[in-house]
Structures are given as structure tokens and as C-alpha cells.
Design a protein around this nucleic acid. Structure first.
Lengths: 246, 246
DNA sequence: GGGTTTTTATTGTATAGACAATTAGCCGCT
DNA sequence: AGCGGCTAATTGTCTATACAATAAAAACCC
């Protein structure tokens, strides 16, 4: 019951605790170790490789702080369930945010197609013009009212499965959380007046203030997905809290 | 040349590294140790109290990750300059954000008064109705264009100096960064249509989309300040990036 | 004085060993 | 089967020591 000791390959670059972190983090991000997988115990590390337990402990502790692992005394160390990532990420996942507020969540997919990247999108995603993308447009409702119109483009080079995913019942946000968890994200927020076209889609009056959240998700330097999320300003707000831990 | 060894008092509650963290964090937040102050070296800790260096190291390392300290080999450990706190906090400090974009920053104070808390504000700040507050309203310009109208209320119980601060040339944002650094913050963002009154203040047309950022700043459970920052939607956007470190 | 080398204080990382705290799983009893 | 107590696996913390890496300060040389 070694839990995958042989998977771990150190690369000899830099501090040992960092090598361990990279090795494990790679196994998780690549999907080789799935959520719930149990890692070797600290003492198994020290036996099979010649590394002090304190060093292993530091690596595992830091990965736990990063949210990739969960640890429990006597039980062991496990790959975390990415269902509860940093609260901030959930801002954009309406499928979980709306039920959390006690409202009834609804979803409809309007467009789902594979296209070559249009110029503007290619620039946002730092991709060569014409790269194959999955393009999805859908809307999210809470208690019947539209709260978000989502336009999304997914990089098929990094996530080819997206071309055949079924977005008719589950939104791309939720799908991506399962397919490509543990990524970095960049948000830009702005306010615009609804165009007649947007007003029609969102069920508001033309000229109404809309809150626009643009989100780019990275794996390293590569953009996995670009999303443009439009909310009726009056029906939605986003809150987050942060600060020094201690 | 002990750098304040005698200031440190452990309370005996919980793990030793945590006691050290609390002690140091308290000295910094209370202002007893100011930015730039040099802490005792790790070996001074181990000499004056009987604690292993690894334990001290863990405490100082974690406080450094929290941004309270900066460390440099051979030079020592110092209380951090709060001028460069989490990048996200600077979103709201126009005085530094605008020059960083190469534009000319301008500022004008419109209102600066001491008042009893109005009902709505008291609720936002979790204070009893009528608590004494400093109320400031001012506007920020970039290259002559208005980019932010700031309404701010400061809790005079926690920051009595605010009643006599000079907000005619320096905005409350910058002032607070110096007076009460290392706090927690909570942001809420939404979009509204400009009322005639707001349009007049911001120099936009009535009905234009505005981006509203509300910010509460905490020390523990107490609200230090509440700010309502209104931006012309088209002239401003905010970006942040985050994710698992590794 | 101005540059270069050497020293040295300080943090960063790694090791080995110890005990504490937690708790899953087993055993035995009813 | 259910309950209670024991055992042991695993993480959490602490100590003591060692060496490496960095960079400030001192020493040196021209």
C-alpha cells in the first residue's frame, strides 16, 4: 500500500523541499493523482528516498497551504477535492454560488461550437490568430431572473476534451472546475451601458448599467480559457475578503 | 544592540511558533515596532529565550509570507514597509495606481467633517447609531479626467487622529495606509446608472454606467473605515491575479 | 581615495531524533 | 450487533546541529 511512491521523480533542481513540491504538484495537475488519492506517509518518503522527515513535512505543509492537499492525523495526506477552492474562484461559478444563496439555479446553453479564434479573442488569449477554440455562450438564472450572460472560449490545444463536452446541462464554469482545477486566474471588472442586443439577452432595458467581469485562467503562461461574464448591475454584486493571515 | 528583545512576551498559549508570531505581530500592529525596525536575529532569540532556532525560523518565515516582515541574508529581519502591501489593496489607492500607469494624478477634497454616524453607514460599519465618524468626500483625476469619486467614513473610536488629519492635499486612502496598515479588507463591486447628481460630480452624462466599489477595512472584527468608490465605467477597470502559488 | 579581496553575521536549507496530539481501526465485552 | 476501550499509524511540533548561500562590512592593496 505505497500510494504511488514510484511516481515521484525529483529533478535535482534547487532545494529538495521544492523538488518534492514540484513533483507532487505535477502529478496532481496532470491528473495522474486524482482528488481523494492517498499519498505516501511522511515516513514512507524518508524510507524510500533518503530525505529527512522535516523536509518532506515542509513540502507537504506548503502544498496544503496552497490548497492542493488535505492532511489528517492518523489518516494520512490526500489530494484535495477541488470543489471547494479559494472562495474567490466561486464568484464566477454561478452553478454553486446561486444555490448557496438559497435561490433556484437555472441554466441554458445558446451556442456551442468549434471555431478558429477571432482576432480580438486570440489577442486576449495570447494565441496565434485562427487557433482552434471551443466557443460557448449560455445564461444563468436565479429564481427565474437572468443574473449572468456568459461568453466563453476554451483553448483546445490545452483541453481537447472540451470539443466534445456536453454543455447543454452543465455550464462551462463547472465543467472546467473538474477538467482543469488548480489554475491561476486574472480578473478584470468594469461597467458598461447595455446595448440593445445585450438588453435583449439579459432581459433589461437598453442603457441599464451592466457589470462585466472578464476572466482569464492560466496554466503557467498559457491561457486555458477566456470568459466574459455580463451581469445586470442591479441584480448582482460580488464580495470577497482578504488580508494578512495572522 | 538587541533590537527590542525585552519587548517580546510569550503568553504560553498554543504552539511556541504561534506565540512568537502573536507577540511580534502585536508589536507591529500596535505601532511599537515601526516599519524599518530591525528585529533580533534568530540566534539572539535562541540565546535570550530557550527556543530552538528552527522554531524561531518558522515563526519569522510565516510572518514574512504574511507580508509583515522582510528578511535579507546577512542583513537581518525588518518590519516591512506597508507601502507595498498586497497588490490588490492598491486598487483602491488611486494616488499610487495612477502614477504607476504614467498618468498625472490630481486630487481635490470636497467635504471633511466630523459627524455622528447616519443610520445606513452605522449599519455598514457595524456601529451603534450616532457613533462619531470622520466623513470625507473627494475626487481623484488622471490627466485631468475624473476617475474616482470617493466617499469615506472613518471610525474615530479606533483612529481618533483622523479628526485632525489634513485631507486637503493627501487622500484618506494614502493617509490610512500609513496610519493603519496591515488590516483586512472586504470588497463589494457593482454597477449602477449615474444619477443626475452623480453625473454632475463625475463629469459624465446621467444614465452612464458607473462602477461602484465598496470597501470595508477591518482590524479583527472592528470596522476601521468604510469607503464607497465610484468610477465612470468606461474610464476605469480593475485587474487582479491570484492562484495557488506552486 | 577607489577598487578588490577577505571576513563574518545572518538567513536558508537539510538532517536526525524525540515526544505530543489525534483518531481510525481493532478487540473484546455485553 | 452495538458499545467501549486499547493500539498504533500518522501528522504536528520542538530541539540540536550542521553546512550552504548571501551580502554587508572590514581589510587590503595600489
Amino acid at each position: 500500500m505505497r500510494g504511488g511512491m514510484d511516481d515521484i521523480q525529483l529533478d535535482g533542481e534547487g532545494p529538495v523541499y521544492d523538488q518534492i513540491k514540484r513533483a507532487i504538484s505535477g502529478l496532481i495537475r496532470s491528473g495522474h493523482w486524482k482528488p481523494g488519492h492517498r499519498l505516501p506517509s511522511e515516513s514512507e518518503f524518508t524510507e524510500h528516498m533518503s530525505i529527512a522527515r522535516m523536509t518532506v513535512n515542509r513540502a507537504l505543509k506548503e502544498l496544503t497551504e496552497d490548497g492542493l492537499l488535505v492532511r489528517k492525523r492518523r489518516a494520512g495526506t490526500f489530494v484535495a477535492q477541488p470543489d471547494a477552492p479559494a472562495a474567490i474562484l466561486q464568484i464566477v461559478d454561478m452553478a454553486s454560488a446561486i444555490p448557496a444563496r438559497g435561490e433556484v439555479y437555472g441554466y441554458r446553453c445558446e451556442i456551442n461550437e468549434t471555431i478558429p479564434a477571432p482576432d480580438a479573442i486570440a489577442r486576449h488569449m495570447r494565441l496565434p490568430f485562427g487557433t482552434r477554440l471551443q466557443h460557448v455562450e449560455c445564461l444563468h438564472t436565479a429564481d427565474g431572473k437572468i443574473v449572468e450572460y456568459e461568453q466563453r472560449w476554451i483553448n483546445l490545444n490545452l483541453l481537447p476534451e472540451a470539443a466534445h463536452a456536453d454543455f447543454s446541462t452543465v455550464g462551462p464554469g463547472s465543467w472546467l472546475l473538474r477538467a482543469a482545477p488548480w489554475t491561476e486566474a486574472e480578473h478584470t471588472v468594469s461597467a458598461i451601458n447595455a446595448s440593445p442586443e445585450q438588453a435583449r439577452r439579459l432581459g433589461t432595458a437598453p442603457g441599464d448599467a451592466l457589470l462585466v467581469l472578464e476572466r482569464r485562467t492560466f496554466q503557467g503562461d498559457d491561457v486555458v480559457t477566456y470568459a466574459r461574464l455580463v451581469h445586470p448591475g442591479s441584480r448582482h454584486s460580488m464580495t470577497e475578503r482578504f488580508g494578512p493571515g495572522a
